[in-house]
Every structure is written in C-alpha cells, then in structure tokens.
C-alpha cells in the first residue's frame, strides 16, 4: 500500500513533498484514469501520493486588481461560475467533459497534465498566464509557456507543488472560442482555437490567438500576432492570415482525428475569427 497524505496546511504538504517526492493529486480526474488497471485490481500508482484537495490555502480565487490568483484546489465548476474569471476561459472550461467531472477537476490539474488537448490551456496562453510553484525552500513564478515543455511534460521538480495560477482579468469584447470535439458534449478535443482582439477605430491594438491539439504544446505565436497589430481590421487579408499560421500548425493522426483535418479546420477557424469581426464592424 502506498503512503499518502491529505494535509490541511500548505507547509505540511510541502515538507512531506520534499521528503517523499510524492505524486500530487488534486481532483484525480486525469491521474485516476492514467493509473487505473483492470476493474477490481489496485491502482497502478506506486509513488507516495499527496492529496491537495483539502489544503485550505489553495481554495481561493484572489483578486489582485488586474489579475486573479487562482488556487490549485479550485474546481473547474467553481471557476466556470466565477464572474471574475475571463469569459473566454469560462467558456473553455464549461465545455470540458461534463458536470460531474468539472465538480472534481481543477485548473491546476489541467495545467500539470500538460496534454496538448487540455482545453483550458489555449485561453491561459492567450492571457500570458503564470504559474506559482512552491517548495519547502521557496516559491517561483513562471510563465505558463515556459512551464509546459511537451506532451505531459513540465519543468516542475519533484519537491514542488503548483499552488496558484495567475490569470489576467481582461474581459475582451472580441473573443473567439471554438472547440472541435469528438461529439457535441463530454468530448475530447480534436482541436481548439481561442482568440481575442482589441480594436480602436478599427485599428488592431492587440490580437492574440492560440491553438490546442495541433502541436506537441499549445501554439501561440506572438511574432505572427505582431504582423497584424497596428493594421486596420478590414485590411486583414484572410488568406494571408491563414498562411501566417500555417507553418506553426503541426498536428498528428491519432484515434480521434487526422492531421489533415486538424490543420485545415484550425486554419479555417483562424480565418473565421477575423471574418466575424470584419462582418460585425
């Protein structure tokens, strides 16, 4: 039987984590599936497990003025209904799995799982989110884009716990979110596209776009965004926009979709975002 701890206090958690190099488990919605074995047999987890769901400090959403500090134990269903959370992120969360799963799953878990198809990630990338990693020897705050290094891979060390996610409070007017899932609900993503734009007199002041499940990590290209910032939105050529993103969309074939489909549809939706703004001018 593996050793486990379910502490109330963060200090206690961090001390134990550094001693045991334990596996942190929040909602368990990914890990319990990843480590499950044939029905009736024990879990395949062999490392000590640190349950983070009962740590008091990790349950709050703190308003820092222009950003939010979201505790690692906050449930997706809580964030889905929290009006301080950017509506783009809420929209993405509300399309993850189904109500029962969102009642256990956490945003921090979705981030640490680092799946290319993690649906909360594209909006978090758009908002230049950061993660806070704590260990018994201190904390560090890291841009999310640097935290996730590949499918299932992060730079978290064994004695660190992701305690908070820092998200901008921006509520943009022109937002776009589209999940193309394997079915209408309770689905995994074939691909996702999240974007927003800020306009002043039709001039693009800011434009951001992120794609999920079309590359080993979320695709967000500031260099491409910058090409279009400063231009008038009605001058943006849809083909040019698609072409700018095309080299960055590098999907694979798997049991859920094809590379061909993912690429074509990702670019269609990229163009759709611009076209919708142009049509509504």
């Amino acid at each position: 039987m593996v050793e486990t701890l379910r502490p109330r206090k963060l200090d206690e958690a961090l001390t134990w984590l550094s001693e045991r190099k334990a596996l942190p488990l929040a909602g368990g919605t990914d890990l319990m599936v990843h480590f499950r074995n044939y029905t009736g047999t024990d879990s395949l987890i062999v490392r000590p497990v640190l349950f983070t769901d009962a740590i008091d400090e990790l349950h709050s959403v703190e308003d820092l003025g222009d950003s939010l500090k979201i505790g690692a134990a906050c449930l997706l269903s809580e964030l889905e209904n929290n009006e301080l959370v950017p509506s783009l992120l809420r929209q993405a969360i509300s399309q993850i799995a189904a109500p029962a799963l969102r009642n256990r799953a956490t945003l921090a878990g979705n981030v640490c799982n680092a799946s290319p198809a993690g649906d909360s990630l594209p909006p978090l990338y758009l908002y230049d989110s950061h993660v806070v990693l704590a260990s018994s020897s201190g904390t560090r705050t890291i841009p999310l884009v640097d935290f996730i290094t590949g499918p299932g891979k992060t730079i978290r060390t064994d004695d660190e716990l992701l305690t908070h996610i820092l998200v901008s409070k921006s509520q943009n007017e022109k937002i776009y979110y589209r999940k193309v899932g394997t079915r209408a609900a309770n689905a995994l993503s074939k691909l996702t596209v999240a974007a927003f734009a800020e306009l002043e007199n039709n001039i693009i002041m800011d434009l951001r776009m992120a794609f999920g499940a079309v590359a080993p990590v979320v695709v967000r290209e500031r260099a491409v965004e910058i090409i279009f910032i400063g231009k008038s939105i009605d001058q943006v050529d849809l083909d040019e926009f698609r072409q700018a993103y095309a080299p960055h969309i590098r999907p694979i074939d798997d049991q859920r979709s094809t590379a061909l489909y993912r690429k074509e549809v990702a670019l269609n939706l990229a163009g759709d975002f611009i076209r919708k703004i142009q049509e509504n001018l």
């Binding site: 368990g28 919605t29 269903s77």
Partner: peptide
C-alpha cells in the same frame, strides 16, 4: 453526490 456535488465515484480515491 459528494458534499452535494454530482461526482463520478470511479475517479475518487477513498482518502479524499
């Protein structure tokens, strides 16, 4: 229902 919330009991370690 766990503490009033709908959950999938197949995903919950009993320690929690």
């Amino acid at each position: 229902l766990m503490n009033g919330l709908l959950v999938n009991t197949c995903l919950i370690p009993i320690a929690q």
